[in-house]
Amino acid sequence: MTVVDEFQPAPGTDDVDDVDMRHLRYFLAVVRAGTVSAAAQELHISQPSLSQQIRRLERRVGAPLFHRSSRGVELTAGGRAFLHGVRDIPGRLRSAIAAAAPAPADLPVGVCHGVPAEVLAEIQCGLTGRSARPDGAEGGPAPRLTMRSVHSASQLELLQHGELAFGVVRIPIDAPGLVLATVWDEPLGVVLHSGHPLAARPALTWADLAAQRLLWFDTGCAPGYAEAVLSQLAALGWQPEVHPMDHDQQALFVHALQSTPDLVALRPQPSVHGYPQLTWRPLPPHGAPRERLALAALDGGPHARTLRRVAAARYWPVGH
């Protein structure tokens, strides 16, 4: 009996019609996430469907691309070679389409957790104006923005691969090679549920906060920002026990504060407008930390030029 190798190269390897951009996007997502389940969550598809598509790609390539284990996946030698050859394809194709097509550009924008709606509206207004066209031309249709949730820590790689044109991140962020335009800069204050014992006080002291736990970002979501704020709080005399939050759902945020008596959060005041069950109090003065959100683009590319142009028009401070 003849045994057929599952990964035996198909005849006619010059013909790549069976490999489409979806397969490359799925492959790059698994590489980036390190597990199929995390990649499936990012892509908003089921894990079995993603596994099936990766196996289909491997059969078309003719070699296994990943070593699979209970801890996740690692690239094989063939997988590393394949990654080297395809990692820039999505960005190059997107640039080619933008250069050739008269239709409005489709600009994917990554958005970190907890960004207020007014920040997204400001970015939408800035990037879809005539001055925001990537080629710098004055006429023609405005670009379309496609926004999706992406952790700040993941956005540099996505920008480098061309899967994002822009990112919305919390700063500071350890991501060299980015142009950053600050769109939002607000002081942080204490957020409590209206039934919290401290909610009735018009002002809070550091002594009031000493016994409170802090509902705070998982440091993997926005490491530079999360660590900077905790360091500032420690210098001011508050070193809270941190209760990490790894989701972006306001209902779960409110529920956590409501169901845990000694739990508080830190947010700018505008972030809690419209939530009568929440109370906001300013932090004690003298160096209270701030939340800064920035629009990011990869330095040296066309989107960085767009960002600088829009930032100048809208008075957004620009840095790296």
Rank of each mutant, 00 (worst) to 15 (best):
M1N: 07
M1I: 09
V4A: 03
D5L: 06
G12E: 03
D15F: 00
V19G: 01
M21R: 09
Y26N: 15
L28T: 09
L28Q: 11
G34A: 03
S37L: 06
Q41T: 13
P48F: 00
Q53C: 10
I54G: 08
E58C: 03
A63E: 10
P64N: 00
R71K: 10
V73L: 00
E74W: 12
T76M: 04
A77W: 11
G78D: 14
A81Y: 00
F82M: 02
L83E: 06
R87T: 09
L93S: 08
L93Q: 11
S95W: 00
A96F: 05
I97P: 00
P102S: 06
L107P: 05
L107N: 02
G110V: 11
V115M: 08
P116A: 05
E118K: 05
L120A: 05
I123K: 06
C125L: 14
G129D: 11
A137D: 07
E138T: 15
G140M: 04
T146W: 13
S154P: 00
E157H: 10
L159E: 01
Q160P: 00
G167R: 13
V168H: 11
I173M: 15
G177I: 08
A181H: 09
V190L: 08
A199W: 01
A200C: 10
R201V: 09
L204A: 02
L204R: 03
W206I: 13
D208F: 04
D208K: 06
A210R: 15
Q212E: 15
F217V: 05
P223L: 04
A228K: 03
V229M: 07
Q232C: 12
Q232T: 15
P240R: 11
P240W: 08
H243F: 12
H243N: 08
H243T: 11
D248Y: 02
D248V: 00
V254Y: 02
H255Q: 12
L257H: 07
Q258H: 00
D262V: 06
R267E: 12
V272E: 03
P276V: 07
L278G: 08
T279I: 15
P282D: 06
H286M: 12
P289A: 01
P289Y: 02
R290A: 07
R290Q: 06
A294I: 12
P302W: 04
H303A: 10
A304M: 02
R309G: 11
